[in-house]
Amino acid sequence: MKKNNITAKDSGISVSKSSNVTINNNNITKSDEGISLKDSNNIYVENNKIDNNNEGVSLDSTNNVDIKSNNITNNKNGISLKKILKKTNIINNKINNNKKIRYILL
């Protein structure tokens, strides 16, 4: 999924029970969750602008996720991590003016 301008009530982009997904060059604003990743693996999130959401990026029960070179700003929670199974890389992102970043390891 690439080059979209997304404003949504629930999730801007939601990926569930999927593999080999690339999300890049999107503008995601005013959603409950900007990008939601759940029960998925081999996900690449790159060069997105994610701002003014409740959750910027939410990961739950994911494997092999790269979050790289995104602007994650002005969200309630910049990045939320739950039940990360293995190999999550958060690299070279601009994460500014978010109220918090949450790590919930179960």
Rank of each mutant, 00 (worst) to 15 (best):
D10I: 14
T73K: 13
N5V: 09
T29E: 12
K86G: 07
E55C: 03
I13R: 05
N74Q: 12
I79H: 01
N41H: 09
D39G: 07
S16F: 06
N52T: 05
R102F: 03
I79W: 00
N25D: 14
G34S: 05
I79T: 04
N54T: 15
T22V: 11
N74E: 12
D60K: 14
N64A: 04
K3G: 10
N47R: 10
N71C: 01
I90S: 06
N71I: 12
N75G: 08
T22I: 13
K2V: 04
K100V: 01
G34P: 00
K94N: 15
I50D: 09
N42E: 12
S14R: 12
K87Q: 13
K99R: 06
A8N: 08
K87D: 15
S18T: 10
K30N: 15
S31D: 05
K99W: 00
N89Q: 08
I23V: 15
N77S: 11
T7R: 03
V57Y: 02
D66Q: 13
N92Q: 08
R102W: 01
N25V: 00
N42V: 01
L106W: 00
S19K: 14
S19Q: 11
V45G: 05
V57A: 09
N70F: 06
N96P: 00
E33H: 05
S14F: 04
N47H: 08
N48V: 02
L37A: 14
N93T: 00
I35N: 10
S69D: 14
K87E: 13
N92R: 09
S19V: 08
S31E: 06
S40L: 02
K38C: 11
N89I: 13
K2Q: 13
N63E: 14
I84A: 13
S19H: 06
S31N: 08
T73H: 08
N75K: 03
D32T: 11
N92D: 15
K100M: 06
N89D: 15
S58P: 01
T73A: 09
N97Q: 09
N41T: 07
D32C: 02
N48M: 10
T7S: 13
N26M: 04
L105H: 08
I6R: 08
Y103E: 07
T29R: 08
I67Q: 05
I35A: 11
N64M: 02
K94G: 01
Y44N: 14
N26G: 06
N77F: 00
N75V: 07
E46N: 11
S58A: 14
S14P: 00
N52P: 00
E46G: 07
E46R: 13
D60N: 15
N63Y: 12
N64V: 02
D10L: 12
S40H: 06
N93I: 01
S80G: 10
K76F: 07
N89M: 05
T73W: 02
N96I: 12
G78Q: 06
K38P: 00
K9W: 02
E46M: 05
E46Y: 09
K17F: 14
V15S: 13
